[in-house]
């Protein structure tokens, strides 16, 4: 198994999840990394990704696991980067014994919401996360209380840092941005949001997905 961390930035934020999967499929083929296929009439390459982000949100860390016997992580990283579209570059690759199943294991993510004006409302923004009622995508008037799903929030010169639930329980950062925009007259667009890291939970605490993957080497 090969698990690769890659970024999804620049133009890729406008590419839908299924198209990203197709791009990865072709990247592996161009790279000459033989990935297994599913059985059945409509065979597809055996690639596992973590759950997709809202449209327009960038990411420094997405993960893909490929069912392959390819055993050289450094070479895999180089080949991937030589053959991928410019905005899907990989930063790390690991050869693991078993499928890390990050799609099921990831429970949290942290983000940066870029906003130079946020620092002017630092305290109020941090307080707003203590009682966070955000709209649902598609029906923003329907509010849900997401307070318990926010694990950390902070504000600096660049903008707002948030660590929140992701996966089965998920806080959509685009809806958080919309809520903060309404409260504080900020102008955070979806494209101003970037995911930084993904986390899994072990023994009741959050560890980075990378740390978890390394434990499977």
């Amino acid at each position: 198994m090969l698990t690769i961390a890659f970024e999804k930035t620049q133009n890729s934020v406008f590419v839908a999840h299924t198209d990203i999967l197709r791009s990865l499929n072709r990247t592996f083929r161009r790279a000459g990394i033989n990935v297994g296929y599913s059985k059945g009439f409509n065979r597809h390459m055996s690639l596992k990704l973590t759950q997709p982000l809202p449209f327009g949100v960038a990411s420094k860390e997405e993960w893909v696991t490929a069912d392959t016997d390819f055993a050289d992580a450094d070479l895999a990283l180089r080949l991937f980067n030589e053959n991928c579209p410019p905005s899907l570059k990989a930063s790390r690759a690991f050869v693991v014994k078993t499928n890390p199943n990050l799609g099921g294991k990831v429970v949290a993510s942290d983000y940066k919401l870029y906003s130079p004006e946020a620092i002017n409302h630092k305290e109020e923004i941090i307080n707003a996360f203590n009682n966070l009622e955000i709209g649902k995508k598609g029906s923003p008037e329907e509010k849900i209380n997401a307070t318990h799903l926010i694990y950390k929030a902070d504000v600096d010169e660049e903008g707002i840092y948030v660590l929140s639930a992701f996966g089965n329980k998920n806080v959509r950062m685009d809806m958080v941005a919309a809520h903060l925009n309404a409260l504080f007259n900020l102008d955070i667009e979806v494209t101003d949001i970037i995911r930084l890291t993904q986390y899994v939970e072990t023994d009741g605490k959050l560890i980075s997905a990378e740390e978890y993957v390394r434990s499977l080497i």
């Binding site: 620049q10 133009n11 406008f14 198209d19 327009g56 053959n83 579209p85 410019p86 667009e189």
Partner: peptide, 19 residues
């Protein structure tokens, strides 16, 4: 232009950057 692309169907039509 990024902001405007968020308002349209299939914005990836207009981004270029293909392999």
């Amino acid at each position: 232009i990024e902001k405007l692309l968020l308002r349209v169907e299939k914005p990836a039509r207009y981004i270029g950057g293909e392999y």
